[in-house]
Amino acid sequence: MDNIIYAVIISVIRGGFYSLMAVGLSLVFGVMNIANFAHGEFYMLGAYFAYCGSVVFRLNPFLSILFAGAAVFVIGVGVEKAVFVPLRVRSKKNWLMNTFLLTLGISIIMQNLVRVVVGNRNYGLRRGYFQGNMQIFGMGISNDRIICFLISMAAIVGLMLFLNRTRLGRAIRAVSQDATGAQLVGINLGFIYSFTFGLSCALAAIAGACLLFKDPATPIVGLAPLYKSWFVLILVGMGNVGASIIGGIIVGFLETLAVDWLGSGWMDVMSLGIIMLMLIIKPNGLFGKKGVKSAVE
């Protein structure tokens, strides 16, 4: 019994990190209609900045995670201005598919640029952020894991509050529902787009920074989280930020189950099998809101 509870706890924590990535992806897809395949690269940058903050500047863990988020926010806004603004001016037709390849291009550039600039060394934290372990039902869990899980949950809750309670957040939601209408009531679309993209990148960066205790910064560290966040996003559907927490936990749980029953290699088969099944039965996702961005044409 203890073992089962423990398994549940570790899958919740595992899934929690996927959620934070998925939220950013969902935000950008909902507001800007961009299928962002460069999301993992912002995660990667977050990891590098957090390393920089924590080892080079010797900031405390919370500050270095915040530093990573802020730095990548700026980079994200820059990328949006440099790439998506010109595209938006020119491309009306096939926007989604154009952004698809565009973000793949961004991802290739960023991975290799990072490799040129900082080299191939792995940058990791020797002792993690917070040393020590906790005991839960006689089994250990590191403090890093618990605290960083709480940080990522706080980030998601913060985002939800921001979207629901602030003027800017409401404006973002308005744009995601009807861009033209929002423009008519005087919302500056260009600003909203840049801000949203930056915000989404910052969320990815926070995820990368949180997980630095476990995943050292390398040029390709963002690949796996990118995939996982797409799994979560498609599983829960678009336009539902809170639901991605549940989605992340479901994916985490499926993977834990697969490791237990079949072996680590079958993790993807297990989670993808369920997600594909879900796509067939309920194409809008488990918690997809009708009319936001529909899967069915």
């Binding site: 498609i234 290699g265 993807d268 796509l279 899967a295």
Partner: peptide
Amino acid sequence: RLGGIFASCMTWFLALALFA
């Protein structure tokens, strides 16, 4: 029944599953 990015994700997931 799927369109756009959802259909793409379905095909992508199939490939990832087959990879595994």
